[in-house]
């Protein structure tokens, strides 16, 4: 086949379009859920995290400020959750964390409630006040138990 500049150009455009599509899929779709600034890593220990997963959202008053980056068990066999939070935020050191569910059966997320202390949290700090996830099955189980106890007496 003879040289044809137009054909080469079209092939080049095709390759470019393909790579653009690939870049869109990788960066825009494949990127992390939370794309704001991160950098402040803090920890919180819970008795029960329910269905919390890495990359679950961290919010303050409904506004996304970070995501869950790690979940592990500590020495006392409690769930230790690592949160990656916008480092520009000055979180009071008595901030509390609770695990909530969006909707009845939706995804679980961490809600931070800023406290009133003057000094801010630094990297690696621990959130002291935590509230565990509510496990729906246990709640129902307890409810059924209570109803049963009431009915028998």
């Amino acid at each position: 086949m003879t040289d044809s500049p137009v054909r080469d150009l079209v092939v080049g455009l095709f390759v470019l379009a393909g790579f653009l599509a690939l870049a869109y899929l990788s960066v825009s779709l494949g990127g992390t859920t939370y794309r704001g600034p991160g950098g402040l890593e803090i920890h919180a220990t819970f008795d029960q995290i329910g269905g919390l997963k890495p990359r679950s959202q961290v919010v303050i008053g409904g506004v996304k400020v970070g995501q869950v980056t790690g979940i592990a068990l500590d020495e006392d066999l409690r769930a230790r959750v690592t949160l990656d939070i916008d480092r520009t935020l000055a979180l009071p050191s008595d901030t509390s964390a609770s695990i909530l569910t969006s909707g009845v059966l939706g995804d679980q997320y961490v809600e931070l409630e800023p406290g009133a202390e003057e000094d801010a949290m630094g990297p690696g700090d621990e959130i002291d006040y935590t509230q565990s996830a509510v496990v729906l099955e246990r709640l129902i189980g307890r409810l059924v138990q209570n109803l049963g106890a009431d009915g028998s007496e």
Partner: peptide, 13 residues
């Protein structure tokens, strides 16, 4: 081999 991933990405987008 070069075209298939590119075509597939375009198809998805």
């Amino acid at each position: 081999i070069a075209c298939m991933p590119l075509l597939s990405s375009l198809f998805i987008v």
